[in-house]
């Protein structure tokens, strides 16, 4: 067992050096952001708990579809009750004309009945770059040890059709329920879909 742990550790270090990104099986890069209310939030505050990162943009039709259908709020609510920390991150560059001021973002989320732990703003796009986040929504699930266990799309239906989010196979839901049941994940990565993040 010692040997196995050792080999795994070496491989992980090698992989981290090689890619420099946030990849499934590696530890999630820590970050320090402020939420829409101006409170500082860092990932390491939540060590020991499952964390979900949701890249969001209220102008993106893919994001809107998941909020209009209450799919996203449902996940936030359900897993929030089970002590999972849900963080939504808006990495729209403040230079982009797609940029929304934190106060407006907070109002939009409130209007939608969003139930995440915090809505974080990343107008310098540094955290999106650290995670190599590409789309909205782009989802990451981090386990209590701080390891990324899922990265990719929210579900298996890349579309903006209102009938899809609730009928799709939701990868985040599956990853969280399998991980919290101590089962291996059937899907630990997928190709993210949606609008590009406005770097």
């Amino acid at each position: 067992m010692m040997l196995r742990t050792f080999i795994v550790a070496i491989l992980l270090i090698a992989a981290q050096v090689a890619s420099g990104g946030a990849v499934v099986g590696e530890s999630a890069p820590n970050f320090n952001l402020t939420d829409t209310k101006g409170n500082p939030v860092q990932l390491s505050d939540f060590k020991g708990r499952y964390v979900v990162l949701e890249w969001t943009n209220p102008n993106c039709p893919f994001v809107r579809n998941h909020y209009n259908t209450k799919n996203m709020q449902g996940l936030q609510q359900r897993w929030g009750e089970r002590d999972v920390v849900w963080l939504s991150i808006d990495s729209t560059n403040r230079q982009s004309w797609d940029y929304v001021k934190p106060i407006k973002l907070a109002a939009w989320m409130q209007n939608q009945g969003a139930a995440q732990k915090a809505v974080l703003v990343d107008p310098d796009t540094g955290v999106a770059r650290a995670y190599q986040a590409k789309t909205t929504p782009h989802m990451f699930v981090i386990d209590p040890q701080g390891t990324i266990i899922y990265a990719g799309a929210i579900d298996d239906r890349p579309s903006t059709r209102p009938e899809d989010p609730l009928a799709a196979r939701n990868y985040v839901q599956a990853a969280l329920s399998q991980a919290t049941d101590g089962k291996p994940l059937t899907t630990s990565s997928s190709v993210p879909y949606g609008c590009s993040i406005k770097y």
Partner: peptide
């Protein structure tokens, strides 16, 4: 290629 054990997808 590096990390040749691909991240498992749903069988």
């Amino acid at each position: 290629i590096a990390g040749s054990a691909p991240v498992k997808s749903a069988p």
